[in-house]
């Protein structure tokens, strides 16, 4: 059996793949958080619960409406995004003039309520969701076995992340978003409906979380606490990347997923803490994050 640094290549590439998969979810979730924080100045603690809701909507669609994975991929982000729009219009909107802390408290409280309701209804054991038939099976790459669904998750989330980056950094719509992040009053005085843009941005960020939830459903089980476990790591990713930085959240999301995977190979004891150790080091030397600019 071939080895690299005394580690069998099978194990190395296997963990690298798991790292990339986790990284895909870190990137999608931290991207949504970054987009929301940029424009709304709110740290969306409900993000994990909204990710979980995405997975549950996929499960509902399959079991109550007979609509499969591909439908869920389109419907769940829209449905959960619409739920986000309602939250923004009715609650978050009241908080923009207050300190960040209030937004954090409100969204954290909402997350607890939503998770509590789902747990009451579905318990905390997972519900099964199978891989769509088109993506079952896998490829033998010679050095490792690559399941098709996992390859799909990596490629698709990378595509979604890069498209989001492109829209924000390179298009007219994105220039409105960036400008409104800096000076919303002036952008509004140019004739742009900034409040509506804020609402839709929150809906979009939430939709990204739900999309990640749908993609996660066949890999992890669909369970009410799936978001709560993940969101803590995602916040560490966001802190490392720099709050509000779009490319930062994508690069650190995938990067930290890979680092976590490699740690599992070389020093498994540290694999659960490595991200937090990196976070502590980054905070010491670059408090605004690797890609962030101090504000």
């Amino acid at each position: 059996m071939t080895e690299i640094f005394g580690v069998p290549t099978q194990a190395l590439f296997g963990q690298l793949l798991i790292g990339l998969i986790n990284g895909s979810f870190y990137a999608l979730l931290s991207l949504g958080l970054a987009v929301i924080f940029g424009l709304l100045n709110i740290i969306n603690f409900t993000h994990g619960a909204q990710y979980m809701m995405g997975a549950f909507v996929a499960w509902f669609l399959l079991n109550k409406a007979g609509m499969g994975y591909w439908w869920a991929l389109a419907v769940a982000p829209i449905a959960v995004g619409a739920f986000g729009v309602i939250i923004e219009r009715t609650m978050l909107k009241q908080l923009y003039k207050l300190d960040h802390l209030y937004g954090l408290l409100l969204t954290f409280g909402l997350a607890l309520i939503i998770q509590g309701l789902f747990r009451n209804e579905y318990g905390s054991s997972g519900l099964p969701y199978s891989i769509p038939s088109q993506l079952q099976g896998g490829q033998n790459l010679g050095f490792m076995f690559l399941p098709n669904y996992r390859a799909w998750v990596i490629v698709f989330s990378l595509a979604v992340c890069l498209s989001t980056w492109f829209v924000i950094e390179k298009t007219k719509l994105g220039s409105y978003l960036r400008a409104a992040t800096e000076n919303p009053e002036l952008v509004r005085a140019f004739g742009i409906n900034v409040p509506r843009m804020i609402t839709l941005t929150y809906g979009f960020g939430v939709g990204l979380a739900a999309l990640a939830g749908v993609m996660a459903a066949p890999i992890y089980s669909v369970n009410p606490l799936m978001g709560a476990d993940l969101i803590i790591v995602v916040f560490a990713v966001v802190v490392i990347g720099g709050m509000g930085s779009i490319m930062g959240s994508i690069v650190t999301g995938f990067g930290l997923g890979i680092i976590e995977g490699l740690t599992k190979v070389f020093y498994p004891e540290a694999s659960n803490t490595v991200i937090f150790i990196i976070m502590a080091i980054v905070l010491m030397f670059r408090p605004a994050g690797l890609f962030g600019t101090p504000r």
């Binding site: 400008a179 000076n183 002036l186």
Partner: peptide, 30 residues
């Protein structure tokens, strides 16, 4: 203010209000 601007009033603010995250062309076209 967004509706007022649409009626045909434009302001050049005292602090100029140039956006740092936009390049000159994007600022001009905003």
């Amino acid at each position: 203010s967004n509706a007022i601007a649409r009626l045909g009033i434009a302001l050049c603010p005292e602090e100029r209000g140039i956006f740092a995250s936009l390049n000159v062309h994007e600022n001009l076209m905003l």
